[in-house]
Deep mutational scan, measured.
Amino acid sequence: MSRVPSPPPPAEMSSGPVAESWCYTQIKVVKFSYMWTINNFSFCREEMGEVIKSSTFSSGANDKLKWCLRVNPKGLDEESKDYLSLYLLLVSCPKSEVRAKFKFSILNAKGEETKAMESQRAYRFVQGKDWGFKKFIRRDFLLDEANGLLPDDKLTLFCEVSVVQDSVNISGQNTMNMVKVPECRLADELGGLWENSRFTDCCLCVAGQEFQAHKAILAARSPVFSAMFEHEMEESKKNRVEINDVEPEVFKEMMCFIYTGKAPNLDKMADDLLAAADKYALERLKVMCEDALCSNLSVENAAEILILADLHSADQLKTQAVDFINYHASDVLETSGWKSMVVSHPHLVAEAYRSLASAQCPFLGPPRKRLKQS
């Protein structure tokens, strides 16, 4: 649940008159999402009104509101027999009622949201009550392989729920002597030191190019640089560091992050930047690179990204790559990247197969709970 924001200063709310007192009302909304995959969808019983329910879910471990999704594969009634019906059901509720908006969509073979439908307002739910769409999607369109909505005969539904909580009022009075504290510009100011090479005390040599930097900042941000300058190493004695395995453009992006906490060109060089972040123990930059690479996972590059993640101990990226390969196994196994990995990294192939087997055979063990970014 997000923290209630402070109200904007009255002088910034309007260029008009300023009242002596004010009130700011925040209506709290808890948002969460749920993904439900139905394997072997074409084998569902086709009687009209037949119901399939998901397991229950909530916004978190401490949330007492429990929900589930309900599907009628062949419609709810005679009117909707040519459609799939989809509903959000409130299973248990400690209150007399709650209000919530919802959005349903289908994830296609690429994991993209399609055929989205959402409620136009927050509906009133009581325990045992459901709301949804009797005519969510035509069955003939859903079952047509050309539309790519049932890869490997799996129907994957994605649901986003927004639950309306209580409202909170914050009130106060205006004073004539309003003090406005300026925003912190530390990142910009440190970035200026790097860009202008002011007050530098060490030189970093990268592929024949020299960059002036500040030992204190490098040591504070990177345990690797800290070790170089702290001990009686040649880098500490000469205040000069030779860097041979990072390209200059990648190095500059890494230094921008060290000084400012930002990497504006990360998406263009996420793979190389991940390697640099791993070498210099820049954990936050490493996770930022993992996130960017996750966003660009595809059938063509899944094997290469899995190898990269394994090489640099990028655990979150590795998990996402394995899950992606499992979901698109029939396509990924035909790529040149996968065939190369079979020869060069057989242990990763074995890991992917083990994960695929456990996903398809849940009876082999208890269900695993899916539970950071600093």
Score class of each variant (00 low, 15 high):
residue 223 P to I: 03
residue 308 L to P: 01
residue 316 Q to W: 09
residue 155 L to P: 03
residue 45 R to H: 02
residue 62 N to W: 09
residue 358 S to G: 04
residue 116 A to E: 10
residue 19 A to K: 08
residue 206 V to I: 11
residue 306 L to W: 15
residue 206 V to R: 14
residue 287 V to F: 01
residue 41 F to H: 07
residue 39 N to L: 02
residue 346 P to H: 05
residue 361 C to Q: 14
residue 315 D to C: 10
residue 7 P to Y: 05
residue 159 C to M: 03
residue 283 E to D: 04
residue 130 D to L: 00
residue 229 F to E: 13
residue 195 E to T: 07
residue 352 A to L: 11
residue 165 Q to H: 08
residue 55 S to Q: 13
residue 195 E to S: 03
residue 90 L to H: 10
residue 83 Y to T: 14
residue 332 V to E: 00
residue 199 F to T: 15
residue 230 E to P: 15
residue 94 P to L: 01
residue 20 E to C: 09
residue 143 L to I: 02
residue 254 M to I: 06
residue 69 L to G: 13
residue 350 A to Y: 07
residue 249 E to H: 05
residue 41 F to D: 08
residue 85 S to F: 08
residue 168 V to M: 08
residue 56 T to Q: 07
residue 161 V to L: 14
residue 300 E to K: 07
residue 203 C to R: 10
residue 211 F to N: 14
residue 188 D to G: 03
residue 191 G to C: 08
residue 26 Q to P: 09
residue 207 A to T: 11
residue 208 G to I: 10
residue 18 V to G: 10
residue 238 K to C: 01
residue 215 K to R: 11
residue 338 W to T: 00
residue 352 A to M: 09
residue 198 R to T: 14
residue 365 G to S: 15
residue 141 F to C: 09
residue 228 M to G: 08
residue 368 R to Q: 12
residue 244 N to T: 07
residue 301 N to E: 15
residue 230 E to H: 15
residue 14 S to N: 05
residue 70 R to C: 12
residue 325 I to L: 03
residue 273 L to M: 02
residue 302 A to G: 11
residue 22 W to F: 04
residue 314 A to W: 13
residue 83 Y to M: 06
residue 244 N to K: 03
residue 198 R to I: 15
residue 95 K to F: 15
residue 305 I to G: 10
residue 97 E to C: 14
residue 80 S to V: 08
residue 282 L to M: 09
residue 31 K to I: 05
residue 61 A to C: 07
residue 143 L to V: 04
residue 298 S to T: 14
residue 30 V to P: 11
residue 154 K to V: 13
residue 136 F to L: 10
residue 198 R to S: 15
residue 147 N to L: 05
residue 43 F to R: 13
residue 319 T to W: 06
residue 40 N to R: 12
residue 93 C to L: 03
residue 153 D to K: 11
residue 25 T to V: 05
residue 311 L to E: 10
residue 251 F to K: 00
residue 79 E to N: 14
residue 150 L to H: 02
residue 44 C to T: 14
residue 2 S to K: 02
residue 346 P to K: 01
residue 48 M to W: 05
residue 350 A to K: 02
residue 357 A to S: 04
residue 148 G to L: 04
residue 29 V to D: 08
residue 329 A to W: 03
residue 180 K to D: 08
residue 271 D to A: 07
residue 16 G to R: 08
residue 315 D to M: 14
residue 130 D to E: 01
residue 124 R to Q: 15
residue 234 E to D: 14
residue 232 E to S: 15
residue 362 P to T: 13
residue 270 A to V: 05
residue 264 P to T: 02
residue 228 M to S: 15
residue 119 S to K: 00
residue 275 A to Y: 12
residue 233 M to F: 14
residue 356 L to N: 04
residue 304 E to W: 13
residue 213 A to W: 07
residue 263 A to G: 05
residue 131 W to Q: 04
residue 299 V to N: 08
residue 6 S to G: 02
residue 198 R to V: 15
residue 330 S to A: 13
residue 299 V to S: 08
residue 299 V to G: 03
residue 33 S to G: 10
residue 160 E to N: 04
residue 260 T to R: 03
residue 202 C to G: 15
residue 164 V to T: 07
residue 186 L to Q: 08
residue 89 L to R: 01
residue 149 L to R: 09
residue 328 H to Y: 07
residue 16 G to S: 04
residue 281 A to S: 06
residue 85 S to R: 03
residue 350 A to Q: 09
residue 361 C to L: 14
residue 364 L to N: 15
residue 225 F to S: 00
residue 182 P to K: 11
residue 120 Q to K: 12
residue 316 Q to E: 11
residue 27 I to P: 03
residue 128 G to W: 03
residue 165 Q to E: 09
residue 345 H to N: 11
residue 227 A to N: 08
residue 150 L to S: 08
residue 120 Q to D: 13
residue 47 E to P: 09
residue 291 D to I: 13
residue 42 S to R: 09
residue 314 A to D: 09
residue 210 E to T: 11
residue 62 N to R: 09
residue 334 E to C: 05
residue 213 A to I: 13
residue 65 L to M: 09
residue 372 K to E: 09
residue 185 R to W: 09
residue 203 C to M: 14
residue 273 L to S: 01
residue 184 C to T: 01
residue 358 S to N: 03
residue 278 D to I: 09
residue 74 K to N: 08
residue 292 A to K: 11
residue 265 N to L: 05
residue 29 V to A: 05
residue 212 Q to P: 12
residue 72 N to Q: 10
residue 233 M to V: 06
residue 220 A to S: 12
residue 370 R to N: 03
residue 47 E to S: 01
residue 37 T to K: 02
residue 236 S to M: 07
residue 178 M to E: 05
residue 356 L to M: 06
residue 51 V to R: 03
residue 371 L to I: 08
residue 208 G to D: 07
residue 84 L to T: 06
residue 357 A to Q: 03
